[in-house]
Every structure is written in structure tokens, then in C-alpha cells.
């Protein structure tokens, strides 16, 4: 085959590789550049975070408004302290909102659902949500269920 044809085909091959990489980056792994630029941090303490992990979603009324950035153990209270990064344009979350750890489907991943309160004051960067609801742990539920039976 002509060397020129081969060069062109090989060029197309390399391009296909780059396109594949781009698809995997943007379409498949939702990789976006400078994501944390337009966010602010809000904290919440939970008795039990269950299967919550970093990068889990934070949603209001089912709409994703941010993600979990950090989970650590508060050594004084022995509760889990979660830092969420909320998109900057969602800036009217009242201070008495509730954060609950919810499950997608029966075996799906955990995410944080925020229910908006009534106060006029809004959460700012570094604030903490007081009212929280821990993850429902399947084993505990089953345990309670069994206890009631007997």
C-alpha cells in the first residue's frame, strides 16, 4: 500500500484513540474541569453515614446541586462530619434545612437529600446543617423487624 495512505490511516487511528479518550473522560466519567471553582462548602454531622462516599451526590427535590467532598470522624462526638460542595448558584438554602442520607433503589448508592426549611437566613460557605437524618442501615431495619416479631 502507498506510504501516504498508511500515514493517513494511522493518523485516523490515533485520532480515534484521542476521541475515545475524550468520550471516556467527558461522557463516561463526567470529568469536568475546574468543578470546585463555583461551589461553597456546607457541613453536616450524621450518626451514621452508611455507604455514603466522596463524590456521592447532594440533591434537592431530586435535582443534583452538589457532591460530597469529604467525610471524617468528629473525635469529640463520634459522629461523621460530612463536607458537601454545593454549586454556587444554589444560594438560597435556609439555615434550618434538613440533610438526610437516602438510598437510590434498594441496593443503589447513597446520596444526601436536602429538605428546605422556612427561615429567611441562608447557608453560607462553612455553615453547618443541624438537622440531620442518618442512613437507614438495612441490617438495623431487619433487626428491628425481627425484634417486633418476637
Amino acid at each position: 500500500m502507498q506510504m501516504r495512505t498508511i500515514e493517513i490511516v494511522v493518523g485516523a487511528f490515533m485520532l480515534a484513540g484521542i476521541v475515545s479518550l475524550a468520550i471516556l473522560a467527558f461522557r463516561v466519567s463526567g470529568f469536568s474541569v475546574g468543578d470546585s471553582a463555583g461551589t461553597y462548602s456546607v457541613y453536616a454531622k450524621f450518626e451514621n453515614v452508611g455507604g455514603l462516599v466522596t463524590r456521592s451526590k447532594v440533591s434537592i427535590a431530586g435535582v443534583i446541586v452538589g457532591q460530597v467532598a469529604e467525610i471524617e470522624l468528629d473525635q469529640k462526638t463520634f459522629m461523621a462530619r460530612v463536607r458537601m460542595e454545593i454549586n454556587a448558584d444554589v444560594n438560597q438554602i435556609s439555615v434550618d434545612s434538613t440533610a438526610a442520607i437516602l438510598t437510590e433503589g434498594l441496593l443503589g448508592g447513597k446520596f444526601i437529600g436536602l429538605s428546605i426549611g422556612a427561615e429567611e437566613a441562608y447557608l453560607k460557605d462553612g455553615d453547618e446543617i443541624r438537622d440531620t437524618q442518618s442512613a437507614i442501615v438495612l441490617e438495623e431495619l431487619i433487626g428491628q423487624f425481627l425484634m417486633k416479631q418476637f
Binding site: L24, A25, V28, S29, R55, S56
Partner: peptide, 19 residues
């Protein structure tokens, strides 16, 4: 289908390691 994928697949810890 796509959003669960985008949430769960991480570029650095999954795609890059595959490469």
C-alpha cells in the same frame, strides 16, 4: 443510565488505571 455512570466512574481512579 448515563448519570449513574458519570457519578460512579472516576477518570483518575478508573479510566487512567485501565489505560
Amino acid at each position: 443510565f448515563w448519570s449513574a455512570m458519570q457519578d460512579g466512574v472516576d477518570f483518575k481512579s478508573h479510566v487512567l488505571k485501565g489505560i
